[in-house]
Amino acid sequence: MTTFLRVRVLGHEVRVAVRPGTAPGPPLVLCNGIGASLDLLQPFVDEVDPRIEVVTFDVPGVGGSPVPKVPYNFALLACLVAALVDRLGYDRFDALGISWGGGLAQQLAFQYPRRCRRLVLVSTGTGMLMVPARLSVLRRMLTPRRYRDPAYAKAIAPALYGGQMRRRPDEARHVLYEQERLGPSAGYFLQLLAGVGWSSLPALPLIRQPTLVLAGNDDPVIPLVNARILRALLPHATLHVFDDGHLGLLTSADELGPIVSRFLISPDGENAPRRS
């Protein structure tokens, strides 16, 4: 049963959820996308092998975590996550990041190589130095309106997220819009600011952890070529391309949950299927 906590760490109050695992081992720490609270990832958490402990959290200013007094960058946020993991009593951990959270996960792997055991990157790229989405897509990402207006979320879902959202745009209302998990707009813009000038591109060859890269074949936000760049530059990376869009971790959770679980549980971290 998932436990919800309020943890005070580095001067910030952070909302955290812990789903206990039935076997010993490092927890999987999930780093969410921009503007999204930890609740958004529940469909994926439900599909992760019950042996694996799963930790999710709201970035300061998002969901149930109050807005920080000063802006942050990925390096500072990685310090916060590492301190949070300490407070929860873990020494080592695995990190999964989706979209914006993929940048944070890469920062964690680079900044804490002895603590971050394995890395999963989903629908993400290398930050400012990447192959960008179309301007029409980027423009819609500049505000949190899709989290606040269910009709707007439905209207833009096919063009913004691709994949299953092209066929079932009504799901955007349920996936994105939940009034009780909204944070203030300031939190969204602080996340945008954190990524300004940041790129993992020069550091990728130095990330030595076994890495699973998951990418949808119809992702308007993060074009597939970015996943191929990650696979090429990360020394120990495996790429799996799935038939869905940017939100595939949620809309294809029944497929991706077991894939991630096998990668984390296997002794060598390389038992995920390979597709390119």
Rank of each mutant, 00 (worst) to 15 (best):
E178G: 05
S276I: 03
D268F: 00
P273A: 09
D49Q: 10
H174M: 12
H236G: 01
H240G: 09
S200W: 13
P205T: 15
Q106D: 04
R274M: 08
P220E: 09
R275V: 13
P158A: 15
T126K: 00
V54L: 08
Y112I: 04
T143A: 15
A109Y: 01
A105V: 04
F263Y: 03
N226V: 03
G35V: 01
M128H: 11
Q111K: 05
S123I: 00
P223C: 08
P20E: 11
Y188Q: 06
Y152C: 04
H240D: 05
P66N: 11
D218S: 07
W198S: 09
V9I: 08
P202N: 10
S266I: 02
L182G: 00
P66R: 15
Y177N: 10
G89A: 14
R140V: 03
P113L: 12
L256G: 07
R146Y: 12
Y161V: 02
P113F: 12
V70H: 14
H246P: 03
S261R: 02
C116N: 05
R168P: 01
A83F: 02
D94G: 07
M128I: 14
D49E: 13
P60A: 11
L142Q: 13
A78T: 11
L135V: 09
E13G: 11
P267E: 14
D46L: 06
D170A: 15
S185Y: 10
V260T: 12
A95W: 02
A155L: 11
P144L: 08
I229E: 07
D94I: 06
D149T: 14
V120D: 01
V29E: 03
P273K: 10
L233P: 09
V131N: 15
L234D: 04
V55L: 15
T126N: 02
A194E: 11
Y177W: 14
V221A: 13
G187M: 07
L264V: 13
P267Q: 09
C31T: 05
A17G: 12
L234P: 01
V45L: 06
R51K: 14
C79T: 10
Q42G: 01
K69C: 03
P258L: 06
L10M: 12
A159S: 13
P132N: 12
R87N: 15
L30T: 03
V137F: 04
V81I: 15
L206T: 13
A215L: 09
Q164T: 08
A159F: 02
A105T: 05
Q191R: 10
S252H: 10
L190S: 05
C31N: 06
P210S: 11
L201V: 07
L30D: 00
F242L: 13
V7W: 01
A227C: 07
H236L: 10
P210Q: 11
P50Y: 06
E255G: 00
G35A: 11
I207Y: 06
G64A: 07
A17M: 09
A203T: 12
G89I: 15
L230H: 14
L256R: 04
I259W: 00
V7G: 04
H236P: 01
A194K: 11
R173I: 12
T124F: 03
V122F: 15
H12F: 02
T211A: 14
Y147P: 00
F4Y: 08
S37Q: 01
W198T: 09
